[in-house]
Design a protein around this nucleic acid. Structure first.
Lengths: 339, 339
DNA sequence: ATACTATCTGCAATCGATTACAAAAAATAG
DNA sequence: CTATTTTTTGTAATCGATTGCAGATAGTAT
């Protein structure tokens, strides 16, 4: 155990009061005569006392920790979210337990259990589709905010992008720039992919462009998987003249594939996707994307969570944020290609 | 409080034994008659009992949480480290508290205090230079592993890159490729920048190239700062013909600056740096870098920490890992430029 | 069968705080 | 100055586990 461990008892002794009084001074919400308060403060200072948060948490049945459960912190989207969440948490005096699930329902369950067992104040969670059905039935009753993904039929706070609309806009942008054979790669583990596919299909329909099944693929949201699938799509007899990708890892793999096939962008093929990463602006041409307001998503999720922690019975909210279409060189219109 | 909260007491009752016995069954290290063990297990199963980790931690004075304190999780280096750490922790049954300090000594102190107050099992920490001097004197006696940075005069486990050597190799590579006026941008908050500067200077010296003070800058390790400083360096009468950057954020800013100045790489200027990020291979030309073995660094740090948690008196170790020079297009020799 | 060990099990203390309740002190009213 | 109310303070229970110690049970040797 820590060597110089000093507990509330020693402080009480030093100040000549009871532990209850010390506790009252420190939680500061209660009445204590100024003189005693002063004595306690001095004792605290002298002994360099710091309250043991574990003991406090056990007794008060509250905690200053929140959980953040995402698929992989290395996904730039979640990296950014996590930073925003941690910032908000810090300001509120909370700290953040980070969990990576790799889109694995088993790990998701394990981490949710951990959250319960450690009695966290609440959880911000980006679940796979698989876990969703169970979610309502699982015995987890801590405050929770779902982020990035939507959970139908479960009454829970949610923050996410307007995925259908965003994909619709992104696809429409390609179409109005003259692209017709639009290949699309969607993540298969999240609802996000599904919604973005919907937006994609609606846009095609609205413009009278037929769906081509070979142009639509679902895959693990990983760079390698994307590279492979994109490469094979590029070998098709009628290869696409544009590629729409549903997250930055898939976009990364697709870009690698284009490079490997020696295709130039956008002359041979356009490339668009989701999420602002450090590199969408650094590669040439820069990549047209839907920028998600990750800071705001993270901050909003944290805010929702703290509100729910404060008032557990509050009606739930679903907050849908708009993405921003950033038009760049990777989707330049066909008739401008010669320039 | 959680609704169906079932404690060890209920389990004991259900199984017709004492709480001590239940505890012994669950911690499984102790002798318990098979029949009782069976009864307890059944009760646990029936009541869906899960031990309260807060209570356990308070009583046993141990914890299954470790802290990870870095400057900014959005720095790809730390993103990767954090993932490796979390993986190792998960395998050992630990979870990870994530803290971003923004290289701010005040936040560092606050987080260190938090770590103490929550009685974490240990901490993996990437400190600023400022906090170092205090480090030994601060009253923090939990197991700690320093990562990425070196702390002279303090007896503590450390994992870091061979920075001097790596910078030396990187610089030598530039020199042997014909570059002579090598500008260098170093982070000012960490020891890492200092060590890399040393390697840079030694390489110049070894090749008989004079140091030019205007070519050496220290800055906040941030994209914007780097962009500004790089831009101003490019305006020099005798502008550099190569830029060496000491981390990926600085490299990002520098690349933006080169793009803004319409300089082509490596014809007008070479660019090299540290850290494998998603984009070093995606931009064209790809960027020559020293790849740090982030997975290994993170894993090693976690291993060291767990070993120290197990045996606090173990002699400390300093583990120095080698970086890997990845030669790419951004530093192609001058005489090949015409090709 | 008796004595002696070795194994199990339960009681109760403990970890370090918070908090219900009651007692004491202070403030206010009459 | 006493009665009543209000504000402070302390005592002790409590949160939910683990664990030292002693008593109970089982096992072994004589």
């Amino acid at each position: 155990m820590r060597s110089g461990m000093v507990s509330i008892k020693e402080v009480a002794e030093e100040a000549g009061v009871s532990t209850a009084t010390v506790s009252r001074v420190l939680s500061s919400s209660d009445h204590v005569r100024p003189e005693l308060r002063q004595r306690v403060m001095e004792a605290v200072e002298k002994l360099q006392y710091r309250p043991n948060l574990v003991a406090r948490s056990l007794r008060s049945q509250q905690s200053n920790t929140i959980g953040l459960i995402v698929s992989d912190i290395r996904n730039p989207f979640f990296t950014s979210i996590s930073r925003a969440v941690e910032d908000s948490a810090y300001k509120q005096g909370f700290s953040v337990l980070l969990c990576n699930t790799d889109e694995d329902p088993e790990k998701e369950k394990i981490y949710l259990q951990l959250m319960r067992d450690t009695n966290v104040a609440g959880v911000i969670f980006s679940p796979t589709r698989q876990i969703m059905s169970d979610l309502a039935s699982l015995p987890f009753d801590f405050p929770m905010v779902i982020v990035d993904r939507s959970v139908p039929d479960v009454d829970v706070d949610t923050v996410l992008l307007d995925n259908v609309e965003s994909a619709y806009r992104l696809t429409s942008h390609l179409i109005s720039n003259g692209f017709r054979r639009i290949g699309a790669l969607f993540g298969e583990t999240s609802t996000t992919g599904i919604q973005r596919q919907r937006g994609y299909e609606e846009a095609l329909k609205a413009h009278g462009i037929p769906l081509v099944p070979e142009y639509i693929k679902h895959l693990q949201p990983r760079v390698e998987a994307s590279y492979k699938i994109a490469t094979s799509m590029l070998q098709l007899p009628h290869a696409p003249d544009a590629l729409l990708t549903s997250n930055s890892l898939i976009m990364e793999g697709a870009l690698q594939a284009l490079r490997a096939c020696n295709l130039s962008i956008p002359e041979d093929i356009a490339l668009v996707g989701f999420d602002e990463t450090p590199w969408t602006l650094l590669v040439q041409p820069a990549i047209t994307i839907i920028a998600q307001p990750t800071d705001e998503i993270g901050k909003t999720a944290a805010d929702l969570l703290f509100q729910r922690i404060a008032i557990p019975t509050r009606p739930t909210r679903q907050i849908i944020l708009k993405g921003q279409l950033m038009v760049r060189g990777s989707s330049t219109p066909l008739h401008l290609k010669a320039m």
